[in-house]
Amino acid sequence: MAHLRRPRPATHALGRRRTLSTPVAAGALVRSLTERLGSDLGNLWTDEDTVEFTVDGARNVEVLTTLRDDPDLEFFMLADAAAVDYGTDAHFEVVYHLFSWKHPAWLRVRARVDRANPRVPTVTGLWEGAMFHEREMFDMMGIIFDGNRDLRRIYMSPDYRSFPQRRDFVLPDDAADSPAAGVNPLERPETWDLTRFNEAPAVTFPPSSERDDAPAEGGEGGEGGETLVDKSRPR
């Protein structure tokens, strides 16, 4: 069972050892899954509060229907549908997280999708709430859901041409390196109007003879007083 245990760092370094907050009856769930799904199940892995397995992308609707409708499993709620990009040479993955009252573990279904032809059947027939999830996955990753009645972009503009969350979409390192750098008037000294600073300041201080903090200077004459009076506008 060692291959099913989550890898832990060395105990001396860090915090308190993690204790289970929900004891998982993983045995019952794993047994039901292997009985019902059999050949579709791949790479079953369990953690203290999660059970995950991998399926092929084309089989996702059948697998999720079984998970939802079977009386032993009854995973009635789709908590999350996410897309993962494993790199330009590798595949995509659509990851579903499901909840059931009967099993105190989250179930994670990882559906593997080909990168060259990223098409997956839609699960909006099972859960209508998957519509926005799938639209977001299409917008950000470019995964196409067959059978989805409304597969259009949701976050970016409809004429946006790229898929931002893919690994080959790289954010600019510095705004200065981007082609739009230097557009801002604050970034262009030639647009600064320095004549504004020749006007008198709006806040002035009383002459030094009246100030409390500075020591009174004898013999200064009246020169220290005039420049501090603001005559730029009527008062």
Binding site: Y155, M156, P164, F169, L171, P172, D173, D174, A175, A180, V183, N184, P185, L186
Partner: peptide, 18 residues
């Protein structure tokens, strides 16, 4: 003012003075 904490984002205008 300048894009703020989203300085490297692909969909944030880097300052409304643009």
């Amino acid at each position: 003012t300048s894009g703020g904490r989203f300085k490297r984002s692909y969909s944030v205008v880097q300052g409304v003075d643009r």
